[in-house]
Structures are given as structure tokens and as C-alpha cells.
């Protein structure tokens, strides 16, 4: 007779009855707790203003905002405004990221040009980008372009800085390894330096995806008659607090979708990294 196995395979492992989310795991309990917070928040929003006698034009209850959301779809062209803002965010984000990646790589492989340009880049980085919005509106009029331009400007820096520092911090032994194989400068960039930027690039892109929404909204607030930023100021002018809130919620949703899309692409591109390094939180 064979001896019994030391660990009975049928016995559940200790790890399976750990307390809820001991190490950041998403369990059923966490989902329920998280959903309860949302329900409590919505309930408080719905009934607290009435109980505290806060007038509707200051803080409309949740149901009132929902009605305004349904009304705005027909009467205010909510989806058109949302669509225009989304397109501005996407175009600004993509162009700003590409520019950041390109300039980051160019400065990364050429330390001289970085030395020459760094004081100006630093100055531009310190300058509050949204303050350029009125200037761009003056230059380009009440079109989508000034909004896109603000988004490009605001997206550019986190992406460029991350790409640049990634190239700067590539292990010199990796470069030497490629050199012993007689790699050309271009091969070193293509096979070693550029792929090294991918992980920091995506950290930059995540930040940039939320910044792009800010840039576009500020542009729309300053001038124009389209987009959620415009709808926001329009609602303000009408004293329609619910419409302002609907606009804010739609903007938040655009930000969430943009961030989620970046996180999804990141998981695809950085598939070679251990899962733990890809935590979104």
C-alpha cells in the first residue's frame, strides 16, 4: 500500500480562505462593498437635499439630473456635444502622445540636443498649459482646433518626460551587448532603446488620457458653441444646475473610457511583463 500523500489534494489551500482582499485581490465581497458605496451615495444625493431644504437650483437631486439627461438628448443635442468633445480628446491625445514619443526619442538618443533644449522645455512644462487656451482661441477662432491644441500641449509633457527618462536609464550593459554584436546606432535604438520606453510610455499615456479631457474642456469653456464645455457654460448661464451636472458626468465618462482604452492597449502591448506590474490602481 502506498503511503498517503503529505498534502491531500482535495483540501483547499490556505490561500483560498484568506480574508477579503488581503493583498489587493478583487473578491465578491469587495464588489458588493463597492456597489454599496455607490448606492449609498446615490441615495444621499436623492434625498439629503430635500431633508436639508437645499433648493433645487443649488443641488438638484439625482432623479432631477437623470431627467435633465433624458431631456438634453432631445433638446440640447447632448450626444452631438459629447461626440465633438470626444473627437477633440481623441485627436488631441493621439497627436500629443505621438509628438511626445517622437521628441522624447529624439532627445533621448541625442544628449547634446537635450542639453540645448532642456531650459526651454522646462519653462514650457512649468507654464500652466490651460492658460494658453484664450490665446489659441484668438488665433484659431471658435473652431475645434484651439481645443485640440490645448490637449496636445498638455498631453505632450508627461509622455515626453517618461520616454526621455526611459531611454536615459537603459542599462549601459545592454547597449554594450548590442555593440559587441556590431549593432549600428539605429539597431541599438530599434532593438534596445525604443522597446525599453514602452512601459514608462504607457504610464505617461494613462496620465495623459485624463489630462487630454481637461485640456479640451478648458478650450471649450473659453470659446465656441459646441462641445460639453460649451454646454456647461450654457447651463450655467441658464441657471440650469442639472445640465451643468449632466455635462460634468459626461466629461467624466469620456475620461474613464479614454483611461480604460489606454489600460487595455497597455495590457496587450506589455503582455511580456508579469501581471503584478500591470496593476491599474
Amino acid at each position: 500500500m502506498s503511503p498517503p500523500p503529505l498534502i491531500d489534494p482535495a483540501t483547499p489551500k490556505r490561500t483560498e480562505n484568506r480574508p477579503i482582499a488581503a493583498d489587493g485581490q478583487i473578491t465578491q465581497g469587495v464588489v458588493i462593498a463597492s456597489a454599496s458605496v455607490l448606492i449609498a451615495f446615490l441615495a444621499a444625493w436623492e434625498w439629503l437635499p430635500g431633508l436639508l431644504h437645499i433648493p433645487e437650483f443649488i443641488l438638484p437631486p439625482a432623479s432631477r439630473v437623470w431627467q435633465e439627461f433624458l431631456r438634453a438628448q432631445h433638446d440640447e443635442g447632448l450626444w452631438l456635444h459629447t461626440g465633438i468633445t470626444s473627437i477633440e480628446v481623441i485627436v488631441g491625445f493621439v497627436l500629443g502622445s505621438l509628438l511626445g514619443l517622437a521628441i522624447g526619442c529624439a532627445l533621448g538618443v541625442s544628449p547634446k540636443s537635450e542639453l540645448v533644449l532642456s531650459p526651454y522645455l522646462l519653462a514650457l512644462q512649468i507654464a500652466p498649459k490651460v492658460a494658453f487656451a484664450p490665446l489659441f482661441v484668438m488665433w484659431l477662432g471658435f473652431t475645434v482646433y484651439p481645443k485640440i491644441l490645448v490637449a496636445i500641449l498638455i498631453v505632450f509633457f508627461p509622455v515626453m518626460v517618461n520616454v526621455l527618462s526611459a531611454i536615459r536609464t537603459v542599462d549601459p550593459d545592454l547597449i554594450n551587448l548590442a555593440r559587441t554584436f556590431s549593432a549600428s546606432r539605429w539597431q541599438i535604438f530599434r532593438m534596445i532603446e525604443y522597446p525599453s520606453t514602452m512601459s514608462p510610455l504607457f504610464s505617461g499615456l494613462r496620465i495623459a488620457s485624463t489630462l487630454a479631457v481637461i485640456g479640451v474642456v478648458v478650450g471649450e469653456l473659453v470659446g465656441g458653441n459646441k462641445g460639453l464645455g460649451y454646454l456647461l457654460t450654457y447651463g450655467e448661464g441658464q441657471g440650469n444646475t442639472a445640465l451643468v451636472m449632466v455635462s460634468i458626468i459626461m466629461l467624466t465618462l469620456i475620461g474613464i473610457v479614454a483611461y480604460g482604452a489606454v489600460a487595455m492597449i497597455e495590457r496587450k502591448v506589455l503582455h511580456y511583463l508579469p501581471r503584478a506590474q500591470l496593476k491599474t490602481s
Binding site: 550593459d173 548590442a178 556590431s182 539597431q187 532593438m191 511580456y272 511583463l273
Partner: peptide, 23 residues
């Protein structure tokens, strides 16, 4: 070297090919 210097974005076979690919 003491460090393996494998490129994390390349599979093992692609890492082994690195030198050949460069050449």
C-alpha cells in the same frame, strides 16, 4: 556577463536570436 541581459519584451528564442538578427 554576470547579468543575463535578456530583453524582457523578447521571448527566449527571440533573445537567443538577438545577435544573429543584428548581424
Amino acid at each position: 556577463l554576470q547579468k543575463d541581459l535578456l530583453l524582457p519584451w523578447r521571448s527566449i528564442i527571440e533573445n537567443i536570436e538577438l545577435g544573429l538578427e543584428i548581424q
